[in-house]
């Protein structure tokens, strides 16, 4: 069964390129435009094998999203990757404290994205 990933980012360009890369590699993807939308997508899905979320987003940021997602027993142990930029060292830690598994540093290449997803999700 194909691995199913949730991709949360308010930037359509980033979101769509991530889903594009993942789909090319055989992953199934669901998109969400911010943390709030992400939580709704969690509620309506039976499973996700991995979640990729941006940090800075309107309505609900990535860190809050992770905290809330971890409260849901269904997603307690699902790997969550935070999209971050290199200048956000503190965000990495904040993300980890909230329950993120790892991070992907922007800008990233397709190979890098797939390597990280593979590292945590397979």
């Amino acid at each position: 069964m194909a691995k199913k990933l949730l991709v949360i980012d308010d930037s359509a360009a980033i979101r769509q390129s991530i889903t594009y890369i993942l789909q090319q590699d055989g992953y199934e993807t669901v998109e969400a435009i911010d943390g709030l939308d992400g939580l709704q997508k969690l509620d309506s899905a039976d499973r996700f094998d991995c979640i990729i979320t941006d940090v800075n987003m309107p309505n609900m940021d990535g860190i809050t999203f992770i905290r809330k997602a971890r409260e849901n027993p269904k997603f307690k142990f699902v790997p969550i990757l935070v999209l971050t930029t290199e200048s956000q060292g503190t965000k990495m830690n904040e993300g980890k404290e909230a329950g993120a598994t790892g991070w992907i540093v922007k800008p990233f290449s397709a190979d890098k994205l797939l390597a990280v997803v593979k590292k945590v999700a397979e």
Binding site: S11, S17, K106, P107, F108
Partner: peptide, 11 residues
């Protein structure tokens, strides 16, 4: 600015 910076390189 941060969002632009983070994504510009990728596109």
């Amino acid at each position: 600015v941060h969002t632009i910076k983070g994504s510009a390189g990728m596109f």
